[in-house]
Structure formats: structure tokens, C-alpha cells
Simulated scan of single mutants.
Amino acid sequence: MAPILERLGFGSKEMTTSGHNKDFVLKVVQPSLVGLMDGSVSTLAPIFAAAFATHDSRYTLLVGLAAAVGAGISMAFSEGLSDDGSLTGRGNPMLRGVITGVATFIGGIFHTLPFLIPHVTLALYVAFGVVGAELLVISLIRYRYFSMSFWMSALQVMVGGGLVFASGVLIGNA
């Protein structure tokens, strides 16, 4: 694995406490995780607000798509422009921006896709399951790469996701 990482520009042989290549964690895993978390959580409120306000899968799908695309673009620019990598060693800002933007879009689009189902109630139940799976994946990544307790990670991610979800439901029912 080390020769492959070196060819991809992750030359540091320094390892994290979790036993992973530090360059890979800083330059790929961390921006991916930031994007997944932002996309998964920040798009919850508009999607579920739209679903509860309109009771229409098509409008909810459009809101979710707009939220996922907008969040992906925003996070790509935020990550790419926030740090040129020279001070922190986090690597090429354009690459980090692309990684973060794509991960943000992925995090937001997966729980949007259930609204392709025309019955909004069924789509909501499927979306709930997808959100749960997304939060589980985020918790597993944090556990694997950042040496943190899986249960503490899951609790933190669920509390954040739950607060955003609740705000979307409350606003959608207003």
C-alpha cells in the first residue's frame, strides 16, 4: 500500500495513532469526511421541510437536488479557498476542494433520491433509513481513521443530525 500512496503524492511515511498514512488522512479522508458530514446533515432541513410542507415528492426531490448541488459547490470553494496547504500540510487546495465538494454532493443526494418514489410517505420512510445509513457510515469512518469510540462518534453524529432533522420537520409543519 505504501508504494501506491507514494505514487499518488502521499509521500509521508508518518502514521497516525490509528495506524494510517498521515498524508492520506489529512489530504483525502479529512476533506471527504467534512463533505459527507456537511452534505448529509445540512441538506436534511430543507429536504424534510419541503416534504412536510408540500406533501409532494417531486418538489421535495427538486429542493433536495438544489440543496445537494448548492452545498457541494459551496463546500468545494470553502475548502479550496480556506487553506493553500503550505502552512498546514493539507495538500493541494484544488484537490481538497474537489474531494470535499463531491463528498458533500454525495452526502446530500443519497437521502434525496428516495423522493423519486411518487408516494411521499413511502419516500419519507426510505429517506429516514438512508439518513440512518449515512450517519452510520460517517461514524464508522471517524472510528476507523481517527481512533475514536464508535459509540461516541455515533452519538455525536446522531445528535447533530437529529437537531437539523427536527428543525426541518418543525419548519415544514409551520
Rank of each mutant, 00 (worst) to 15 (best):
G11F: 00
I106V: 15
V130I: 14
V34E: 01
R7G: 15
M15H: 04
F24H: 10
L140V: 15
V157W: 09
M37T: 15
A71L: 05
G19R: 01
Y145K: 05
P3S: 09
H111I: 06
S167A: 15
I47D: 03
L8H: 02
R90G: 05
T60S: 07
L95A: 14
I141Q: 11
I109W: 14
T104Q: 03
R58S: 13
I138D: 05
H20G: 00
A51C: 01
E14L: 02
K13H: 14
A166K: 11
K27A: 01
V164F: 12
E6R: 13
P114Y: 03
I138R: 04
M158D: 09
Q156F: 14
I99Y: 04
S147C: 00
N92W: 02
R90M: 04
M148N: 13
G80M: 03
L33Q: 05
R144V: 14
L122V: 15
M75V: 04
V28W: 00
V25Q: 06
G85N: 02
A53N: 03
L36P: 05
R144H: 14
T60R: 06
F52L: 14
T88D: 02
G89F: 07
Y59G: 10
T112S: 13
Q156K: 15
S18I: 03
G11N: 13
W151V: 00
I47M: 06
A50M: 01
I171R: 03
A67Y: 08
A68Y: 08
G168R: 12
N173W: 12
G35C: 14
K22R: 14
P93N: 03
L65S: 09
A50V: 00
T121H: 13
L122H: 14
A53I: 06
F146N: 06
T16E: 09
A154P: 01
E14D: 07
L5H: 06
I99T: 12
L62I: 14
G89L: 05
L36Y: 11
P3H: 08
A103L: 03
L122W: 14
G39V: 07
K13D: 13
Y59N: 12
S139G: 13
A127S: 12
A45H: 10
D23H: 11
G97A: 02
G168K: 11
V131D: 04
Y59R: 13
T88Q: 02
L44Y: 12
G132E: 00
L36F: 15
P3N: 08
L135W: 07
M148S: 15
P118F: 00
R142L: 15
F24I: 06
L122R: 15
A68Q: 03
V69P: 07
V102W: 02
L62W: 11
S42T: 11
A53F: 05
R142T: 11
L163R: 06
H20W: 12
G39Q: 06
I138G: 07
S12V: 04
G39F: 05
F105W: 08
V29F: 05
V25S: 08
S78M: 02
G97S: 02
L81I: 05
M158Y: 12
P118G: 11
R142W: 10
S147Y: 01
G161Q: 08
M1V: 04
A66Y: 10
G72C: 01
L140F: 15
E6P: 03
A49W: 05
L8C: 01
T121M: 11
S139E: 10
F48M: 12
I109E: 12
F105C: 07
G9K: 08
